[in-house]
Simulated scan of single mutants.
Amino acid sequence: MDLAPVGPNDRRRLHGSIAHDLAVAIVGGQYKPGDVLPNEDVFSQKLAVSRTAYREAVRILAAKGMVESRPKTGTRITERARWNLIDPDVLAWHFEAGPSVTFLDSLFELRRIVEPQAAALAAERRTEADLQAMLVALERMSADNLSTATSLAADLEFHHALLAAARNEPLTVLSSGIGATIRWTTMVKQRVGAMPSDPLGDHREVYEAVAARNGPRARAAMLSLVEQAQAATHQAIRKGPARTDPVKNVEETRR
């Protein structure tokens, strides 16, 4: 892993930059579970940074379950099963390193487990304020079919409003992870040009079912939305250039 020495104006963000580059190297396989990271003296000298900055970076990764530090044995990469895989930062690092299609599918599987039932609960428990938040997000999404940062933010707001309407506190903990999954998979689709399909109709169907307080319809509509998003992501990956797309080619991953 190569990092350029950092100037004094970047000291505040230094430990975050070190954590980012270490994490991408770990996720990308440069460091594997069980490997020991360079000790802080070697690392700080190589990058011309303080040992304090390196320690802070390691603490960030440890908080996300990716490394553990022990006296005399150093900082070791942990097994993937211990990583907080739906942490927004960890997801971002995966997409930067290039996630496998298997990992992408596991994220969509999580969405299929969580979001349809959340939609059904939202249909039972939503308030007029919840509906208004979802409707505003829909209107913003309709402006440009998720082709800009503004409409993508509106898509995330729609899903956040839906989860909030379910009125389940533990469920809301998953909101940031699900939002990050939506954000990054949408960006995968955008990298190969226009969106493979228009997702607005699927979102509107979810909204109308929630507004009608029809739980089964809301559940089915959300399941369809997630399945369509997964299919569109696969389609985008197949069309994308193998050398530049951050997600590994579908057929290569399956071999």
Rank of each mutant, 00 (worst) to 15 (best):
P216T: 13
F158K: 08
G215D: 07
A153Y: 08
E115S: 05
E115W: 01
R126P: 01
A166H: 01
E205N: 11
T172L: 10
L131M: 05
Q190M: 08
A194P: 09
D155K: 03
T148D: 08
H159I: 01
F158C: 06
M195K: 03
R191Q: 10
A221I: 02
A118R: 05
Q228C: 09
S197H: 15
E128W: 01
T185D: 11
D202L: 15
L156S: 06
P216W: 03
L200V: 12
A165L: 06
R191I: 08
P196E: 00
P216G: 11
A143I: 14
L135G: 10
R213T: 08
L135A: 14
D202I: 14
Q132A: 15
L146A: 11
V226K: 04
E115F: 06
N145S: 12
T172V: 11
M141P: 00
Q190A: 09
Q117E: 09
E205G: 03
H159N: 04
R219F: 15
L171G: 05
E139I: 02
A154W: 04
H203D: 02
L135E: 14
T181M: 14
N145K: 12
R219N: 07
Y207E: 06
A143F: 11
L162P: 09
L174Y: 13
Q132F: 14
M222P: 00
P196Y: 00
T181W: 03
L156A: 10
A154H: 06
G179C: 10
A164P: 02
A133M: 02
A166V: 02
E115K: 01
R213K: 11
A220R: 05
L200P: 09
N168Q: 07
N145T: 15
P196T: 00
T172F: 10
M141V: 06
A149C: 04
A212V: 02
E208N: 15
A164K: 07
L121T: 03
H203I: 00
E128T: 07
Q190W: 02
S224P: 03
R167G: 05
R125W: 04
P170R: 10
R204W: 13
R167D: 08
A209N: 11
V173C: 03
E157R: 06
L121H: 03
N214T: 01
T186W: 14
V173W: 14
G179M: 10
A133L: 04
L131T: 05
V206F: 02
S147C: 08
R167H: 09
N214E: 00
D202G: 15
A211K: 14
D198P: 13
T150F: 10
L135W: 15
L171F: 02
V226H: 05
